[in-house]
Amino acid sequence: MISKTILYGLVLTSSAPAALAETYTVRAGDEVGFGINEHFGHPGIQQVYLSRAPEGVAAADYDGSGAWARVYSLTSSPTNSTNSSSTNDDEVPSWATHNIETFRFALPTSTPPGEYLLRAEGLALHAAHKRAQAQFYVSCAQIKVVAGEEDVTNLGADVREEDLGPLVKIPGVYRGDEPGVLIPVFWSSLTNYTAPGPALWPEGTQEQHVAEQI
């Protein structure tokens, strides 16, 4: 049975029973989602990072100073052409995040059991052609990951915390002048986009171009 719980703007979709607490228990491989205040109205992207709390430290007491892995990236849809018959027609980006109010993704099945911070990061690009003008919209959730239903005994047993990655520190992951944070032209003139951040974890995770909403 799928349960859905909303708390402080966070939406979690999980087969595990929802707890009325600040830290949610979810199974590795379950879907996790975030609600967005009103909607994401700017051109831009949504990404998610995951950081495990130190051994013996609850997610509620963790300050996020450890290492983070990028586990989800939602960017632009395939480039679309304008419908005008004008000779000035250009290829323009179509952002998968445009006006979404929620988004969801599957927590990696190989996520080791433990307590984590889950960072949802919206990046608005309407002024990102100017240095230091990209806008970050950030929210964090506290989760406790347990083994998934398919393999309760072994799931995550062969994946250590140091196997997550590549790992980065936040703040520190972005300089401000890398592709994706500083873009070469005004956003509506882009024909392709490179999301910032380390490679997605686990290896082989694909960037998403269509929002899965809750």
Rank of each mutant, 00 (worst) to 15 (best):
V71L: 08
E207L: 11
V146W: 01
L118R: 08
Y8P: 06
A28F: 00
S3Y: 09
V173C: 10
E212Q: 07
V185F: 04
S139M: 13
L74T: 00
S110M: 10
N83E: 01
A60K: 13
A134R: 13
S85H: 09
K130A: 07
P202Y: 02
R131A: 13
G29M: 00
N154G: 09
I214F: 09
E22A: 04
P113D: 00
G165H: 03
F40G: 08
N88Y: 10
V181Y: 07
Q47W: 03
E212C: 05
F136W: 15
Y49T: 02
N37L: 13
T79S: 06
T13V: 09
S76E: 04
S65G: 05
T13Q: 07
L117D: 03
F186G: 07
I2Q: 10
P202T: 00
T79L: 10
S139Y: 08
Q135S: 14
I143A: 08
R160W: 05
P113Y: 01
Q47L: 13
P184Y: 15
R131W: 11
G33C: 14
A157E: 08
V146S: 03
V168H: 07
G172L: 04
N154H: 12
L10K: 15
A58F: 03
L10P: 12
F186M: 13
G172F: 00
A21M: 07
G29S: 04
I170W: 04
H126M: 08
K169S: 14
H98T: 11
Y137L: 15
A60M: 04
D63L: 01
P198F: 06
